[in-house]
Simulated assay, not measured.
Amino acid sequence: MKQVGLFFGTFNPIHIGHLIIANHLVEFSDLDEVWFVITPQSPFKVKQSLLDNNHRFQMVYEAVQDYPRLKPSTIEFDLPQPNYTSDTLAHLEDKYGPDYAFSLIMGEDNLKSFHKWKNYEAILEQYSIHVYPRISTGEMAHQFEDHPKITKVSAPIMEISSTFIRKAHNQGKNIRPMLPEPVWKYMDEMNFYR
């Protein structure tokens, strides 16, 4: 059975922090692969600042080409909007069946609001969650502190954000070191976030 970690996000754009965390998980956990699930619309984010789905897919595709255990996923592109993780998980189970075991990957900051997610109790009953550290959040959300399905991962702490990259790029700052080289090239050629 293939163990797949699902790393959900808008990836607007994908950056080296995302890659470092995903690669850490395939190298230092029981995960065989990490899928970057590109979300067309998060229920918690405003859509107007998002690039088109296909452009964000292309950047993820470019970013993971040299990492065979990291994959881009468009699974949410054809699902009803906004996307809810519980619905996506049900769709993945239908599509891939018993040969795949899915788990979630999220930062400590997302775990703090996890109790607001649609069907979060059902998600926790059926799926494991790998939680990576964030500086700004302090302790893990206490209601999930010792939950048997939640594993705190000692991944490198990455405080790079797509929001910061977009704003800095728009201000003419050099953000190239924060992006995988092919992502930078694509973003620069397409003149995104200026």
Rank of each mutant, 00 (worst) to 15 (best):
G107I: 06
N54F: 03
E145T: 01
V183I: 07
Y120M: 02
G97Q: 04
W117Q: 07
N170K: 15
H169R: 15
Y120D: 05
T151W: 01
S162K: 09
E76I: 06
K47Q: 09
P80A: 13
M190F: 07
L19R: 01
V4N: 12
F36S: 05
I75F: 09
Q3E: 14
T74K: 14
V183D: 09
S113W: 02
T137C: 12
L19T: 03
V37Y: 06
F77T: 02
H15Q: 10
I21A: 04
Y61D: 11
I150A: 04
Q41R: 04
Y67T: 04
N170C: 11
D32P: 03
E189Q: 14
K116M: 13
Q171S: 14
N54W: 10
V60A: 13
T74H: 12
Y127L: 03
W35A: 08
G5V: 11
I160V: 15
E108I: 11
R134A: 09
I20S: 12
V183L: 07
P148Q: 07
R69A: 12
S86Y: 15
R166L: 05
F57I: 10
M140K: 07
Q48P: 00
A122D: 10
D94F: 05
V46E: 08
H115D: 15
M178T: 07
I16P: 00
V60C: 09
A22S: 08
K71C: 08
Q143F: 05
Y61K: 15
K45C: 01
Y100M: 11
L6V: 14
N23C: 02
L124S: 10
D52T: 04
F44A: 00
R69C: 08
K116I: 01
V26L: 07
T74I: 04
